[in-house]
Design a protein around this nucleic acid. Sequence first.
RNA 1: GCGGAUGUAGCUCAGCUGGUUAGAGCGUCGGUUUGUGGUACCGAAUGUCGCCGGUUCGAAUCCGGUCAUCCGCCCCA
Length: 431
Amino acid sequence: MDLKPTKPLSGFIELLPAAQRFVDFCAARMLGVLRTCGFSYLDLPAIERAEVLTDKDNWDEIETQMYLFQKGDTKMGLRYDGTVGLSRYVAGHLNELTFPFRASQFSKRYRGERKQRGRYREFYQMDMDIMDINSLSTNYDAEIISVIQRTLDSVSEFIGDNYVLVGSRPFWDALFDYLGLTDNQKKEIFILIDKRDKIDDAEFSSWLSDILKNETLENEIKSVFTNGYAYFKGKSDKLDTAIKELTDFVEKLSVLGVKNAKIDLSITRGLAYYTGLVFEFKLSEYPELGTAAGGGRYANLVEKFSKTKIIGVGAAIGFSRIFVALSESGKIDLSKFESSVDVAVLIMGNENMPYAISVLNALRDNKIPSVAYLDTDKKFKNQIEYADKIMAKFSMIIGEDEVKNNFVTLKNMANGNQQTLPLADAIKLVK
RNA sequence: GCGGAUGUAGCUCAGCUGGUUAGAGCGUCGGUUUGUGGUACCGAAUGUCGCCGGUUCGAAUCCGGUCAUCCGCCCCA
């Protein structure tokens, strides 16, 4: 009979124990930061109604990368991000929530795209969002950025330093209006700007020229990257508003203590629901991972669910992209996550088991991570090999002599030293 | 969905321009050592050489197709 495959589906992740411990350790630290920053943790459904997930405007694009299916008459799909489900949740619990509402999430997301480095079909993202009714100060945009930085910094011993690039969709909207571009041109240039870090200047110029076919306009667009956004001051009221927002925002970030922040107008975050400032975090030491976290302001997303005007600002940390990718790449030293237990209890002969189990329970009562090798008839060599392989810090050996004298033999697995002593003393040494 | 590369033992790979019984290291298991691991030595098991077809006296090797994986593109709310 043919054996069934042992590899998971392409793009789905499973980790070895040490890598999983590393990932869990980082997640716990980062979630601790979010709790400290006053976010309420939510665990929302992985499956949503299809109509919640899809946007009829660009169904074709979505369909290829979303997991959709049907049970009975209900069309549903797996969530592809955390923001859409949160918008539904907030709109559905308006009267029960206190605004500004601060929510954090840490959950699996699903996208049916081809696997690439740091990009999976099933992956974790860690989200934080702040939503309020009718208005929401850009002070909150700045706070979100400072919270992400705090979160990333909490695991900087593994991922190194980070920096943040801030873009502005209102600036481009204002500029496009000022230049009198068509809707189609706006859309295409947005896509082009977003790609700017992947292509060279010549390519950028030639694409731009294909879209605009007007050298004056092309030069105006390019001048944003050479002369900076301040160059467009005084051209139109909308531009002035957008420029002032950016200038003020830099000040806010510095008040909040955000380091390594820079305005970079090539950050646009695709085409979707963002309406205001947008930002992306990168890791200085791992540029190949791309964007480590990204987000921005969305003023209109919740209007799909509620007539109440709800404005949000939020971000997602690409958790799997960072931590799974790093642990798989071998760039992280996982040695301190290799060991799952402090003590392995080794039992020489089944008749010594009752005593050995009382030792095991005492260890566990003292919160010492411990396991016993319960196949008591196996040769002692196998038992101590097991203790070695699971990298137990100590072995506690229980045989005839130990039972008779009500002692234990404690062996330090690192240096091989061992001594026979009362259990209470052994526990003190292990702790 | 598109382009490129790669498929040989559990893993990493070798196998020259086709030649008879398919190779190594690591790992696994057993033994030297049934109250002592990490080192050493000895031994063993495991392959329809991704799959199907073609060329040939003869295919892991050459050709075609197919599937899978990896890298990149598209996309990335």
